[in-house]
Design a protein around this nucleic acid. Structure first.
Lengths: 344, 344
DNA sequence: TTGTATGCGTTATCAA
DNA sequence: TTGATAACGCATACAA
């Protein structure tokens, strides 16, 4: 054997004086081999530093022990915690996670899904429901099971998530209950993003319930970044009728909004109330703490992994796992200022 | 063809009335095929929703167009931005990124490296230099090129990073120049983490330069989390001789420390100065802004990707790409309080 | 319990 | 320009 080539099953077999089949069995079904030969084989594996070739293995066994996840972004903490527990659960089951990010772009998501299928991912984790039909066709065609997280999917789809609309509605009710009437939103881009869109919808529902004209609700859509939220806040506050409360589509936006509000000399919440959504770490770091919707990220990640693994093994799963969200009060939401409007 | 099976090259070939070789060429070297047949083949590909099988492809071509990255964590933003640009650069080159996280655990990192090699990663990105020899042996044995980022590696290793020691030293000099003498550190765990260790070392160097007894430097090592930093801060401030300045090993710790200091009623920086390292987004969100070491994350990610791609293609690379860091003044570092010690 | 032989889906070599 | 066919490394049905 060429000392400079990557060792193959064949090399191990020769070194141990057995057949390739035996080596393969040692590695995959150790029980079907006597302790003596297993010892010899393992020693050879060790000596040669053998690592199975993934391509060969995948080709022969028609499975990869791999699942993929396509996330909108890795750039902020929104998906980090959930992904971490997702991966921990998979890892415990001996399954490797492939992570891809789409940059909130439907085309790129299609590509990534195809790539993962091509790589033989046994299953795929997707975030939210909004994507083009083609993506679902690939999945169906390839018979690749998938789980939708962060949202509840339609009938026939397996999902592990929470009620984005309902949670946002509940938050908006709280805001209204504090006496706010001029309410604005800083939202993530809602196009092809059902979570962002659902949160806007939830707020609208609460406004209607309260008899507030939803046509008056100003929604400023921005990308998920502190600065973007800050600029949205400036735009909102420089209007003729600035809001007394701003409901943000997630915590990154909420924190960015609080920071900018303070820079503008506004006191949160006495001049202006601000709320978030997600409950990521920074929500409790800013001052005042961000009142936000707590999402059980870790439980969601774990449940998503368990569901996907079950789906892959053909075990029965409940179609939807609906997780509870709660509102976490930290101080950035307060009563509407009496009478006079806050001005920057 | 079974309408319910994943289409293979063979199915496409039949559909288009050509050989599998032609289909393969169409997909990989379109120039070597006439426009007419290419059209026919592409139509068939589209109609069948064909996706190449990764295993087969990897096996036959002996390459995967895949690189792996083993990060210490995905749970905070420290590596997010660098990883994002790393992946963008790869993606532009048609290379897929596999992300694995080790949880700052050397054993797990070994595992992950093996797994990536086994999956045929053409190259691997590693963070920092501290790991056990076995990891390097796997890499050598498998002839898998790798690039070290976030640090500068030893001679013979390719790395794209910055001078952790020098940058921390410079920051400590600034702190000393502000008149601080009782200085403490909140550091990440330094065991098997050369970045964290280097930053402590840099601070020690600056103290020695200034004739300050380094034995007096209290270093509180904690995991990378806001809360952990907060508790470390409490421990430090409840000592008999509380520091007037705390140098934090990274921004997560710095921000956590600022938040807790404020909760304790300390005014930053007049009672207590706090500095960070990394310059991630939240550094400019807290109040006061965190004075920190700016690390060019995006450039580092891009350069790491370019270097790794070059290595994979056998193109020449410069062994080390040393990026400049700068100190970013945001207000959390101020002059040492005159005389009286800050007390919580 | 172990070995032999075949096939997995693709690329690449060589002829046509 | 295209087609036939032999690898590629491994798992597995079947034989011993």
């Amino acid at each position: 054997m060429d000392a400079f080539a990557k060792p193959k099953l064949d090399d191990v077999a020769r070194e141990a004086g057995v057949s390739t089949a035996t080596v393969s069995r040692c590695l995959n079904e150790p029980g079907k081999v006597t302790a003596a030969t297993r010892d010899r084989v393992m020693r050879a594996v060790e000596a040669l530093g053998y690592t199975p070739n993934f391509g060969g293995k995948a080709l022969a066994s028609q499975k990869t022990s791999t699942v993929g996840a396509v996330l909108p972004t890795l750039d902020n903490a929104i998906f980090a915690r959930g992904l971490q527990s997702f991966q921990e659960t998979l890892s415990a089951a001996g399954v490797t996670l492939l992570v891809a990010s789409s940059g909130y772009d439907a085309d790129r998501e299609d590509e990534q899904i195809r790539a993962l299928i091509g790589r033989g991912a046994d299953g795929i984790l997707l975030i939210g429901t909004a994507r083009r039909p083609a993506a679902y066709e690939f999945l169906k065609r390839a018979r690749t099971p998938y789980v939708i997280a962060w949202s509840i999917g339609e009938a026939g789809e397996t999902s592990v998530g929470f009620d984005n609309v309902g949670a946002a509605r509940e938050m908006a009710r709280r805001v209204i209950a504090e006496g706010h009437r001029r309410i604005a939103m800083i939202s993530g881009i809602t196009h092809m993003n059902d979570r962002a869109a659902g949160r806007v919808e939830g707020v609208c529902q609460a406004l209607r319930e309260a008899g507030i004209e939803t046509a008056d609700l100003v929604v400023d859509e921005v990308r998920y970044a502190f600065d973007e939220a800050g600029e949205a806040l400036e735009r909102l506050m420089s209007r003729n009728d600035p809001p007394t409360a701003i409901i943000c589509g997630n915590d990154v936006l909420g924190v960015g909004a609080i920071a900018r509000a303070k820079q503008l000399g506004l006191v949160v919440p006495s001049d202006l109330s601000i709320t978030g959504f997600d409950d990521i770490d920074i929500a409790s770091i800013v001052e005042p703490g961000l009142t936000t919707v707590h999402v059980p990220h870790r439980r969601m990640g774990t449940a998503a992994a368990e569901t996907l693994l079950a789906l892959i093994d053909g075990r029965p799963v409940s179609e939807t796992v609906l997780l509870e969200t709660t509102i976490c009060d930290r101080g950035s939401l307060g009563p509407a200022p009496a009478g006079n409007r806050p001005r920057p």
